[in-house]
Simulated assay, not measured.
Amino acid sequence: MSIKIMADSASDLTKNYFTEYDMEMVSLTVHLDDKDYVDGINITPKNVFDAMRKGASPKTSQVSPQTFKNIFTEYAQSKQPLLYLAFSSELSGTYQTAKMMEQEVKEEYPDADITVIDTKCASIGYGLVVLQAAKMAKAGKSKEEIIEEASKQALHMEHIFTVDDLEYLKRGGRVSKTAAFVGSLLNIKPILHVEQGKLIPLEKMRGTKKLLGRMVELMEERGGNFENQVIGISHGDDLERAEKLAEMIKEKFGAKEFLIEYVGSAIGAHAGPGTIALFFLNKSYK
């Protein structure tokens, strides 16, 4: 029986991808204006960013243990292999919850073929890893081959991004209050990256004019072979800048294939409007 790929909504892949590649999706929850919404289902990133511009402070919560238990039990009973590629454990408790439920279900169904992997990736960086796994599954590759390639891609996936206002990351506990205060005071725009699954500030720049150029420079320093990989770009309701960044990359490196999507509702609730994020495989990926 072919393996089923599962991912959560923090991959920032739209429902169309899940349908096209017959993947299982689990959603984080977005709390906005005293209501709970299912990320990727009954709330759009645009809803979240518009609310944040008006002063709202959305919160998020991880996928519930019961959701994982129900899905894992269903796959255990049907004896279909399942590979869940999870959002970075450094940014959400979803991976740990899934691991607990995997163990619980395997106590009842010892032969259940369920594997849970921490990608240490986020947004479209995570989405690119998931899509490659889904394409391999569709092509009939073995579970071992898919796990090996997904793990390798996840390890070598670069995340370089900038946010318009550090205040949003501060509210979510993603950066320190001091960093957020200094940033807003001096109109400093940060460039951050993901290291071992964590958000790490990389550089600070005054104003926004040179930001995209610097992101392209960092891309050149860290990556290569761009014409033979899919470059990911996600944006916080700023398609114009995302497309400008893609054009700069196309001109400089001859990159041909791009995946440009909104930063999803769950990640967007922490990153805020105006976020621009860039994802590619680094030089050490073979």
Rank of each mutant, 00 (worst) to 15 (best):
Y17C: 13
R222S: 03
N282F: 02
F280Q: 03
D8P: 12
S78Q: 13
D111A: 09
F226R: 06
I124N: 00
I249A: 03
M23A: 04
N47D: 06
V63S: 10
G223A: 04
Y75V: 03
D8G: 15
D238C: 03
Q62G: 09
E102C: 12
S2D: 15
G272A: 02
E144V: 09
P45C: 00
K204H: 15
K198Q: 10
M25T: 07
Y21P: 09
S92E: 09
L202M: 12
V175F: 00
L13W: 09
I231K: 08
Q96D: 15
G223W: 02
R222F: 02
A269I: 07
K143C: 10
G127Q: 03
P273Q: 03
A10C: 14
G183R: 01
V182D: 08
A255V: 09
A10L: 10
I233R: 00
N70F: 10
M23C: 05
K170W: 09
G40A: 08
V63C: 12
E257P: 08
L278F: 02
R241W: 04
L91K: 09
V163N: 01
Q196S: 14
K138M: 11
I41T: 06
D111K: 07
M1R: 15
I200F: 06
A10G: 14
F253N: 03
T115G: 05
A134S: 13
T275M: 01
K54I: 02
T29Y: 08
Q229W: 06
L32S: 00
R171A: 01
H156C: 03
I231W: 09
P45G: 00
H159M: 03
M23D: 04
L202F: 14
I147V: 13
H270R: 06
S184G: 14
M219K: 05
M25S: 12
E220M: 06
V38S: 13
G274Q: 02
P81T: 13
V182P: 04
L155R: 13
P81S: 13
T97W: 05
D165Y: 04
